[in-house]
Amino acid sequence: MWSTLWRIESRGIRRDVIGVAELIGFVVLSLLIFAFVTRAVSIPAPLILWVTLLFGGVLYLGRSFDREWASDGSRVLEGLRMIPGAIPRLFWVKWGSNSLVLLLVSLLATGLLMLFLEEPGGWLAWSWLPLVIGLCGFSALGTLFAAGVVMQTRREYLLAILCYPLAIPLILAVSQCLTNGLATGRVDPVWIKLTAGCALLYITVASLLFPYLVEE
């Protein structure tokens, strides 16, 4: 069943290339704006990357279930509901694909950031860990609530209203990890534990709550 779900999801991503392109476009534009802003005010590159991915991530995650709920694709979800155990697995597939897309876009954004800011990128050696964990945790919350607000008229701002307050501990922990890392040149052990704890909590809770939001 895992392979079937993953095939459905990867086919959906291929069909919805526009969604990924929109995310990349948003990230590039945000980085350009930050590149202009940092000429006047100094903002550390890892924090620019983290904030850009958070904002772009909400836009992308909001479209997670469009394919399943769209008028021509609604049979996909109806079909999955009839298969015992498919919905809990759907969360893991969706979370995996969303995290993967966000991580790939973050790789692209890192390259662009180094290009725009003329950064040597020495921070990459230690900052990848909090960024990867943070994105995985944030993606779990986004995937959960994307299922909740799908096909709602005001979903764009609803998802942001839901995700950002709930993810504040994670956002704070990653930001603090990156800030302390810039000073010491290594990952802060206390804040990385908090980041990992928050991400683990969000992934666990989201996977447990997901079936309730989808199986109505």
């Binding site: 959960l144 609530f145 839901l162 709930l166 109505e216």
Partner: peptide, 11 residues
Amino acid sequence: RLVSAAVAIIG
């Protein structure tokens, strides 16, 4: 009800 319940539990 479902979405708000999820928010309250995480809250």
